[in-house]
Design a binder for these strands. Structure first.
Lengths: 232, 232
DNA sequence: TCACGTCCTTGATATTGATCAAGCTCTGAT
DNA sequence: ATCAGAGCTTGATCAATATCAAGGACGTGA
């Protein structure tokens, strides 16, 4: 691994509070790899050989069943994926592919498991990480089971706008069909849902969105902390 | 806490591999409480004051939004709930109520967090627990997003039958309306789905179920390890 | 600038699931 | 044994979402 890469890796959120020496030894067995867009990085059902951390680019986490496919989430720089499988030495439950060209840090699963067994700080960091990830999925499950597609879209827009600093504007960060799959609907339904938001003064052109009547949209979306607040 | 209760608690899966001394000190601040059926044990949105472990009875974990409600899971003796909220000192994301009269071990959240911070074994046990729970929800999310109600029912039947030792018979362990909510459908849809399984030689009378053509049901359900295998 | 392909939208229609209403069944209490 | 109530089923209808098909918009490379 190049020295400047190493420098960068050390600061990953995953390693916060973990002894420098241990991070060092973990990183010694790791390497950074570039992948072109659209290639599958991991395939569900395969044994967890590596823990992946995104350095650059966007990664879609998805899962398939029969001829269907759904995206679970889309991750960016700083995010890691499939910690749980690595920690438990099990099979991946989800697949991953780059939506863009990516640079990815790959940590051999064996090293991560050793770190977990030997370094208490790292073990705690992993536990906290797992707990946060767990709550994230629970929220998503509630989102799916309790809301209609239109409500999911409305809430996603509000959440995304707030993530971008509550400017009233936002960019959809990937293809609409990916967003549709993330939100759990067919692309056609997303199109129609977008059209259905015009009365709420939502103005979508391409990937550029403007929310011109926050109140109206909020009254439709009705966000609640226990589903929508990322800090909750 | 009564002495015989203490004896029982020590053997909970949560404490596996944790030093006896530490378990002891944890349990000193804990107590066992009886609740009548149908009372709400925890309410989503409340701060996590206790970690709950079921000693006796059935507990429904559910969540609400507007006037809707969905059950996330139904737990039995030995299961604990809301570890993540306790560990992170956050608010509960789900509510819980007894489906039957229950006996429940309540561990003050503060003590659990101390244990996590000070006992490395306990921290690891929690991390593993969180990882398992995480994978459970991911599977459930896939189940919801990728399958129809009929498929979810068919797969639930198979999983439940295998849990009971693959005898071809099984008991639905709670009211059908709870099962419907657990599977993410209206009670009427569950009724009709059950009727739709008659051609597959599924015989349901009350809570008693018999699977008379496993092959046929399997070809409809098409279970896959990455959603349905609890050991995966 | 044009042409191609991909992505998105729109329309028509089918399917799935929800809701409303009524009746039935089982159980538990009197 | 009888009655009340809860839980379940069934029918009719409606709403939400998926699917199929076609056309339009847009960006990219020649």
């Amino acid at each position: 691994m190049r020295d400047e890469d190493l420098q960068e890796m050390r600061q990953l959120p995953l390693f916060e509070g973990v002894g420098a020496a241990y991070v060092e030894s973990l990183l010694r067995s790791a390497f950074v790899q570039r992948f072109p867009a659209h290639v599958e990085l991991v395939h569900e059902g395969d044994p967890a050989d590596f823990l992946y951390v995104i350095v650059q680019g966007q990664v879609e986490i998805y899962a398939g069943y029969r001829d269907r496919e759904t995206t679970i989430s889309v991750l960016g720089p700083g995010n890691s994926f499939i910690i749980a499988a690595v920690l438990l030495d099990r099979v991946y439950l989800k697949s991953a592919r780059g939506l863009t060209p990516t640079r990815i840090l790959m940590l051999p699963a064996e090293a991560v498991r050793e770190g977990f067994a030997e370094d208490a700080h790292f073990a705690r960091a992993l536990a906290v990480d797992m707990a946060l990830a767990y709550r994230g999925v629970v929220k998503e499950l509630k989102n799916q089971k309790l809301r209609s597609s239109l409500e999911r879209l409305a809430n996603w827009l509000i959440a995304e706008e707030e993530k971008g600093g509550s400017t009233g504007k936002l960019e959809i960060p990937y293809d609409k069909k990916v967003l549709a799959s993330r939100l759990g609907m067919a692309p056609e339904v997303l199109s129609r849902s977008i059209a259905a938001l015009i009365p709420y003064k939502v103005d979508i052109r391409g990937r550029h969105v403007q929310l011109n009547d926050r109140e109206a949209l909020l009254s439709l979306a009705r966000p609640v902390p226990t589903i929508d607040d990322p800090a909750c």
